[in-house]
């Protein structure tokens, strides 16, 4: 239990010393998650800086995806999941009962582990969000949003001649970029990525990583990854989770070169996980 009390303090200190935290976009305080009787996440406290990439690393089952799904309240869709503690986006409590989860998810987009384009055309996939949120006033408006989103996702040149073909007919890497285009079409502030490259080959992975680096200028990105090289390549800050505990967080280069905690060091040097 001692480590439980220690951990939040360590992480809070680490977050303060993060050089990129000009302004924390997402702030979590003492977040606990329970799946039924299972205590999946213990007292997570972390600041996530704006317009930068934050990577969550850690062995399987360490709670990093669970915490990611707290930030857009996707855990609400799991009936046995229970979340306590506070998460604030721009100083607004997202677990406030008055907050509309639909509006929250329009502000916090998500890209999943396996590309999951809808069984619709490429155009309709990207137009889905703008349509349900009523973002486009006219058909031209909608076309502009779709075009811009596909361009920003680096997919436009590959699909501009076949917008009416099924999104599921694209290759895995293209599907994942389509999902990113779909997420950015509603102009979110934060984009959550849950191991977005784990189903992709190295070339498609490189394309998506490049894209993440470009998107950093406009969005706050939080990425869960199993690949430490990927965390090192794309992120400015890294948080290491282990057994439901946020062990350590800080600038990526510091975490990878001079980790403070023994567990982080063991994980990074490949001693477990």
């Amino acid at each position: 239990m001692n480590s439980l009390v220690q951990t939040p303090k360590t992480s809070a200190r680490a977050a303060e010393s993060t050089p990129h935290s000009l302004h924390p976009k997402v702030v979590a305080k003492d977040v606990n998650v329970y799946y039924g009787d299972k205590h999946a996440l213990h007292d997570v406290t972390i600041d996530i800086p704006e317009k930068a990439v934050m990577a969550f690393i850690g062995p399987s089952g360490c709670g990093k995806s669970t915490f990611l799904r707290c930030i857009n309240r996707m855990n609400d869709t799991i009936s046995i999941a229970r979340v306590t503690g506070d998460i604030l986006i721009d100083d607004q409590h997202i677990y406030d009962p008055k907050l509309d989860v639909v509006q929250l998810r329009a502000r916090v987009g998500m890209v999943f582990q396996k590309p999951n384009p809808f069984p619709k055309s490429i155009f309709e996939n990207v137009a889905y969000g703008p349509r349900i949120h009523g973002l486009a006033r006219s058909k031209t408006d909608l076309e502009e949003i779709v075009t811009a989103s596909l361009q920003r996702a680096g997919l436009w040149n590959e699909v501009k001649d076949r917008l009416n073909e099924a999104g599921t007919g694209l290759s895995g890497g293209q599907q994942q970029r389509l999902c990113i285009a779909r997420a950015i079409a509603v102009s979110p502030e934060v984009i959550l990525m849950d191991e977005p490259c784990s189903a992709l080959d190295p070339i498609a992975t490189a394309r998506v990583e490049e894209l993440i680096d470009e998107l950093r200028q406009n969005f706050t990105i939080i990425i869960v990854t199993h690949s430490m090289q990927q965390a090192a390549r794309v992120s400015q800050n890294t948080a290491f989770f282990h057994l439901g505990i946020l062990v350590e967080t800080g600038p990526t280069d510091q975490i990878f070169t001079t980790p403070r905690d023994k567990r982080t060091q063991d994980y990074i040097t490949g001693r477990f996980g």
């Binding site: 869709t77 639909v102 998810r105 329009a106 998500m110 999943f112 999951n116 809808f118």
Partner: peptide
């Protein structure tokens, strides 16, 4: 379920 998650993640009801 991934399709439903994708839709919920977009803020669909």
């Amino acid at each position: 379920q991934s399709l439903r998650d994708g839709s919920y993640g977009m803020g669909a009801t």
